[in-house]
Write a protein that binds this DNA or RNA. Sequence first.
DNA 1: TTTCATGTTCGATAGGTGTCGAACATACCC
DNA 2: GGGTATGTTCGACACCTATCGAACATGAAA
Lengths: 117, 117
Amino acid sequence: MSVKQFYTGPVTTQASELAQPGAEDLTLADVMHALGDRARLEIVQSLHADGERQCGSFDLGVSKATRSHHFKVLRESGITNTRIDGTARFVSLREGDLEARFPGLLPAILNAATADA
Amino acid sequence: MSVKQFYTGPVTTQASELAQPGAEDLTLADVMHALGDRARLEIVQSLHADGERQCGSFDLGVSKATRSHHFKVLRESGITNTRIDGTARFVSLREGDLEARFPGLLPAILNAATADA
DNA sequence: TTTCATGTTCGATAGGTGTCGAACATACCC
DNA sequence: GGGTATGTTCGACACCTATCGAACATGAAA
């Protein structure tokens, strides 16, 4: 995996979202790789169940630095969207983009995650 | 990911298969992790399309040492089965076991792999 | 038995990954 | 402004991983 750079578009006033890859740019290997981790799998499960959530509301049993790292991996792989509101970041699943790019994949993974517990 | 040890059962005469985890022991994170790699995704795709194949018949553009490594990862994550025949190893997808453990997951991934090309 | 083909394992290497604490950046509130 | 809350980034660390060539193991073929 190499360092990634995403075009964030012309900056007008303030960004309200963090940069993320376009829906067409998602690769299966990246998505699978991002989900090959218990903590991130747990995050995705929660996001699906609860919808948008604040980053800090997740108790993953790791430091906030590590938590921040996991959210970055998910965002850069195209799985999540991060909305900025003040000092808080709200994360949500890009279910529509994922469905458009890889139909049926996320539902199957979410279902499998249930069977995994 | 820690070192794994699988019970191969009582050795009678000669082993005809390499050790692999039981269907119930598969974890989603391990499966996702194993598939978070282009080469291995390609292998899984081919195995699904062609059925059982000899390890050496795959041209992944890597050395045979690396190829052997990828097959080991797939086998230890529970995705493939390896049958021994002389000096050759024949690999196949454990589609039944995967379907039993994570219904619909493999088909969705295979479908996504098509969309990824 | 010698040779060959198919793989695995070893040792090495470069780079990735999860983890942490500490420092930094920001926005909000009093 | 000063303090507080929410996150990100940095530097460090241990470990994992993809990769290779070379050596080894093993079964088949000549």
